[in-house]
Design a protein around this nucleic acid. Sequence first.
DNA 1: TAAAATGTTCTCTT
DNA 2: AAAGAGAACATTTT
Length: 273
Amino acid sequence: MPELPEVETYRRYLEETSLNHKIVDFTAVDPKRQLLEPLEVMLKELKGRKFISTSRIGKNLLVSLDSGKILGLHFGMTGDLHYYRIPEDAPRFERATFYFDNGFKLAFVDSRKFGRIGIWENETLLKTAKKLGPDALEISVEELATGLKRRKGPIKPALLDQQLLAGIGNWLVDEILFQAGIHPEISAATLSDPELKRLAEAIKYVLETSIAQEAIYRELPTSFLIHAREWDTSPHAEKDAHKNCPECKTPIEKTEVGGRATYLCPNCQKHKN
DNA sequence: TAAAATGTTCTCTT
DNA sequence: AAAGAGAACATTTT
């Protein structure tokens, strides 16, 4: 789930629930794997502190502590947050827990354990250490164009490179390329100016629309390609309802680009080269 | 049951 | 130095 819109939604959730409570304890079920510092260090930095504000760079949620340091949360492929008090409300796959002095807990939920939690001196150090490019919602067309011109390979893996721009993942990259009418395997360096402009607009449009829906992709407009993804297999979903292009009704193609599952409309996203 | 999965990072090669 | 390919990581779901 966690591409930029999910992480932005988690950021807002954390902001609504977890600011300004004193942290009384912190636990992790697999600290060696998921904590970037030893558990004792994490405890020393967290205990007695409060979260006072939040920000986000790409898929990273940054939480400022009243000590001035930054708690960095990355959600891997399956991360989520859940704020609760009574044990009956505990989520499945709770991997780390922040305990507050009001009796509530903030759970870091992550079935696959690819998520990571760390402490940083400041935002800049986190950004540098993680080699993050500009956030996908803030990058300018010029920066995007410059970054893409240095690339040799196809556009899709370039857009997934968090060092070039941060926040796009494997689901939304397909949506962005579809909305821009660009084939995922077109060489990144050879995009024309109009294509670059359409791409930059599609990045903003897809991310902002997804954030507005709180990253619930089922509720995105029917003009989106994403409904062709496997997740749309709820019991009430019409069988094969979304397997055709919302624009031209051509069957959606599933292939592999850069080692990742890729959905595209072969008619709307022509592969010239 | 085997396969596939929203992400990153490390190693090896070019 | 930098970019790309491929594997590895751990676990759940279909």
